[in-house]
């Protein structure tokens, strides 16, 4: 699987309150959540982005609350994957558990500029920045690969 799209670049320590503010957590409907994704980091984000685009961010992406609404909203709005310098641990778990592809690569994040086109090859773990070069994403542990292959935690558990 590979993901190709335009990058939306965000800063460091993007927290789950910025990804999906708590004022919208009176619902767990993915489409309703998607309408407000990244709202407190960039109020116009949903209007500007198109399906297939990629979120790129600095270290500790998804820190703060455990709300799974954050990766759910990112996935539901059509973001194909997230590339960050690093992820906060609960967000990291949640993304794998619900099948939102995420990649860690400080080098790629440093190279990517707002609006760049990139391609992420999930299997090879390679991030190609158009007109720049190739960068490696941190390899997942074997168990995480099984989770991805199964399509998330619940389908993994069902298979067992």
């Amino acid at each position: 699987m590979s993901y190709k799209g335009k990058c939306w670049k965000f800063g460091d320590n993007i927290n789950t309150d910025e990804i999906i503010p708590a004022r919208y957590l009176n619902t767990s409907d993915p489409d309703e959540l998607a309408a407000h994704v990244m709202e407190d980091a960039d109020a116009e984000f949903v209007k500007k982005m198109t399906a297939g685009d990629i979120i790129v961010a600095g270290p500790n992406f998804g820190c703060g609350s455990s709300r799974e609404h954050a990766p759910i909203a990112i996935k539901a709005v059509g973001i194909s994957c997230v590339v960050a310098e690093s992820f906060a641990r609960i967000f990291y778990r949640n993304a794998f558990n619900i099948g939102l592809p995420i990649f860690e690569s400080p080098e790629a994040v440093a190279a990517i500029k707002q609006g760049d086109e990139i391609e992420v090859d999930e299997k090879k773990g390679v991030i190609t920045v158009t007109g720049d070069g190739e960068y490696r994403a941190t390899e997942y542990p074997e168990f995480m690969r099984q989770l991805i292959a199964a399509g998330g935690l619940m389908s993994y558990l069902k298979k067992r």
Partner: peptide
């Protein structure tokens, strides 16, 4: 606990950590 502040109970000498909803479902 599907709440990030589940780490509170470590004060009692428990291993306690926040997870998301799907981990709670599992």
């Amino acid at each position: 606990g599907a709440d990030s502040h589940t780490c509170t109970y470590g004060a009692l000498g428990a291993f306690s950590t926040g997870v998301g909803s799907t981990d709670l479902a599992g």
